[in-house]
Amino acid sequence: MDYDPMAMDDAESLGPVVKISQADSVRVKFELQNADISFANSLRRVMLGEIPTIAIDLVEIENNSSVLADEFIAHRLGLIPLNAEGVEHLLYSRDCDCEEYCEHCSVRLTLHARCTGYDNMSVSARDLVPVGERINQTLGTPIITDKDGTGSLILKLRPDQEIKLECIAKKGIAKEHAKWAPSAAIGFEYDPHNKLRHLDLWYESDPKAEWPPSEYAKWEEPPVEGEPFDFDAVPNHFYFNVETAGNLPPDGIVAEGIKVIQQKLAGLIHELTEGEGDGGYDGPRSPEYNSGPDTNYGYSTSYGGNGGNQSAWGGGGGTTPFGGQTSYGGGGWS
């Protein structure tokens, strides 16, 4: 290993350690050390499926003379990534007091295009216009990342064809429908040299020649020839590659993922210690996970708050209900 052994010893007592190898507006690559595989995998699963974002959920078509069927267009609209900045202030429609949807639980977008020229015309995400009241000026705006600045193509119109519709974008999670997924992909790997033999690499004649080494192979020591198999070895270094679909920044996906899983676990603690009356958990705490309209995601969650730094998890632990005992050493972390 090319890590300082002293630092490793230090880390052992501190819990999970992160090393970021790349961070830009599209992806963040990081290595998670000193954590259990279930710990890393839970984070991965939550980032894939349970981070709230916003996507078009209802489409009212007023006029569609294009060649595509209404439901086909509605499906395409649903898959367009929308900016989810500030989605924590948006309510879930099912938790809102309104009849069907309102400005507290949805963002309205309209699309009206008519081909008046002689050539076919492309209608793209850029032509979707958010209308009406919004929580902030970015929430629900279609994501445009391509060079031409048009965004994803929705449909094409021949001369004289017209499309006119109104969309309702709602908050949701990818467990309900993949259109709410914040991440385009999450790379997750460990043990690049397959020392643990979790993989059985198929090969024609020589697996070494046929399987190109992972980009992380140089981060870990290659196996020594003739080394006996270590039956007690467990994976300890996990390599994440979180790529955003555009709706949340990649580091925001990681931060939100951590928040969601903490809320899940905190909800369980709350349920289990309810009515015990020892006062241990009567302090300020976020309402139960997914509990409804007043779920104040972040900002006043119970994990933190004393550090005064801006991360939702607050600073150095200490007086927070959960931060108090950061001594996982005793808990038998390996």
Binding site: L14, G15, P16, V17, V18, K19, I20, A23, V28, F30, L32, A35, F39, L43, D251, V254, A255, I258, K259, I261, Q262, L265, A266, L268, I269, L272, T273, Y303, G304, N309, S311, A312, W313, G314, G315, G316, G317, F322, G323, G324, Q325, T326, Y328, G331
Partner: peptide, 28 residues
């Protein structure tokens, strides 16, 4: 036992979040 593990895990994820933000700030 379950509550103890849950508390440790919330703390561990909190630690992970702080580590991540710290690394990210350094990186930027």
């Amino acid at each position: 036992a379950l509550v103890k593990v849950l508390k440790e895990l919330v703390a561990a994820y909190g630690q992970l979040g702080r580590e991540f933000q710290k690394e990210l700030a350094l990186r930027q």
